[in-house]
C-alpha cells in the first residue's frame, strides 16, 4: 500500500470521527497534492485557476465527506472529486481539453522529482558498472532491445548476456544500498 494513501486515510478516518486537528493536517496535505495535480493539467493560460480549483475541491471534500466509504482507498475518492471539479471547470469555461485525463495514481505520484534528474541518476549509476555489463544493461533495460538481439549483435551467448546483466544490476543494487545507509 502506498504510504501516502495509508497516512491520508488515517487522517480522514479521524476527521470523520470529528478530530479537527487531524482534519487540518489532512486538508493541508491534500491542498498540496491538489495544487500539483491541477497545475499539471491546466494550460499556461489557465494556471492561475489552480488555486480556485484547489479551494473548490477542498470545499467539496468538506461538504461531501459523508460519501467517503472507509473500506475504499481515500486517494481514489479524492481523485474522483478533483477530476469532477476539473472537468466541471473546463465545461463551465468552455476550455477544450488537451491534457489527457488519468488514473488515481496520478494524484499521488511516488515522488515529485524531475524526470531529467532521474535520468542523470541512472547514468551516474551505470558509470559504476564494468564497461561490458554497462553496455548490455543500457541496450536491454533502457533502449529496450531483447536479450536475443543483443546476443546476436555482440556475438555472446544468450546466457552470457543474462549473467553479465545480472551481475551489473547486482552491483548497482549494492551501490544504492550503500547510498541509502549514508556512505555513498
Amino acid at each position: 500500500m502506498n504510504p501516502v494513501e495509508t497516512q491520508l486515510k488515517e487522517l480522514m478516518l479521524a476527521s470523520l470521527a470529528g478530530d479537527a486537528r487531524s482534519y487540518a493536517i489532512l486538508l493541508n496535505d491534500v491542498a498540496k497534492h491538489l495544487r500539483f495535480y491541477f497545475l499539471r493539467r491546466l494550460s499556461e493560460a489557465h494556471k492561475s485557476d489552480a488555486d480556485d480549483l484547489v479551494q473548490e475541491t477542498l470545499m467539496a471534500l468538506h461538504s461531501k465527506r459523508a460519501t467517503y466509504e472507509p473500506d475504499r482507498p481515500f486517494t481514489a475518492w479524492l481523485h474522483a472529486i478533483a477530476q469532477y471539479k476539473l472537468i466541471d471547470h473546463f465545461r463551465r469555461n468552455r476550455i477544450r481539453v488537451t491534457v489527457p485525463l488519468d488514473d488515481a495514481e496520478d494524484l499521488i505520484p511516488a515522488d515529485y522529482s524531475d524526470p531529467t534528474s532521474d535520468r542523470m541518476d541512472v547514468e551516474s549509476l551505470l558509470q559504476s558498472v564494468p564497461e561490458k555489463s554497462r553496455e548490455l544493461i543500457y541496450r536491454t533495460k533502457i533502449e529496450g532491445q531483447s536479450i536475443a538481439e543483443v546476443a546476436i549483435s555482440t556475438g555472446l551467448s544468450q546466457s552470457a548476456v543474462k549473467v553479465s546483466i545480472h551481475r551489473g544490476v547486482k552491483a548497482i543494487a549494492a551501490k544504492l544500498k550503500g547510498r541509502a545507509h549514508g556512505n555513498g
Partner: peptide
C-alpha cells in the same frame, strides 16, 4: 487557502 482550511476545520462535525 490557509484561511479556508482553518474555517473548514472549525466547521467539522462527526
Amino acid at each position: 487557502t490557509d484561511d479556508l482550511i482553518a474555517r473548514l476545520a472549525l466547521d467539522l462535525k462527526p
